[in-house]
Design a protein around this nucleic acid. Structure first.
Lengths: 117, 117
DNA sequence: CCGAATCCTTTCCGATACTG
DNA sequence: CAGTATCGGAAAGGATTCGG
């Protein structure tokens, strides 16, 4: 036995965990609903296409909710669902670890590369 | 402001977070050192190539340590470094969330697909 | 037993152009 | 504003073969 690994592939969750932008998009919705352009501006380096794709996938997964507001002019907002909020809570430690240890990891890489070319 | 997102791309951590197999390999080392073949047997669906690549990357990142034992016959073990242990601790909540919510996510997908084709 | 190397297919993803 | 459509290069990743 090895930790929490169950033996079968975690089909259905992997796409979230592996998605290049999913974590940062979810994180961007931490403080409440946002519009497409707000998200685009707030996320460094994301293309329009990838933001669209990421939002669609997260909506499909039940992580966020897409709402069309019929005011004038009409606009669309994205916000976390309850399931999305629990996901964000669970993901926070890992994001914080990443933020806190980027330098250590890069140092380890530099060391490794200098040893082995 | 939006959660823990700093605005700059998290260069250096993304490869770990995005890697298809990194989490499950790290998790497989939770209980101690393992040999290549043990890992291969324990991880469902991983190819020899991807296990090799994943182990190299994690070693390079300072997450795990590769040790060549000069006994007869010689063998090689992989184990988490202290940095790797902190990574695993940080990743646990997300892995547990994934394990606990696969069904919910798949249900959400089925609902979404039945609504929109 | 633990890989490295090669081949080949699939998927990702940015750039660009267009739409209601 | 909030997308959709299409293209093409880049990267991932499986299968297979070979080596120490």
């Amino acid at each position: 036995m090895s930790g929490t690994h169950s033996g079968r592939p975690r089909v259905g969750c992997r796409p979230i965990l592996e998605d290049k932008w999913a974590l940062v998009v979810v994180d961007s919705l931490a403080t409440g609903a946002r519009r497409f352009t707000e998200l685009k501006r707030g996320i460094d380096g994301i293309s329009q296409r990838m933001l669209t794709v990421t939002l669609r996938n997260l909506e499909r997964d039940g992580i966020l909710l897409r709402t069309v507001h019929n005011v004038m002019p009409p606009h669309i907002t994205y916000e976390l669902t309850p399931l999305g909020s629990t996901f964000l809570q669970a993901a926070r430690p890992m994001m914080q670890w990443a933020e806190a240890n980027v330098d250590r990891v890069e140092q380890a890489r530099a060391d490794y590369d200098s040893r082995a070319g």
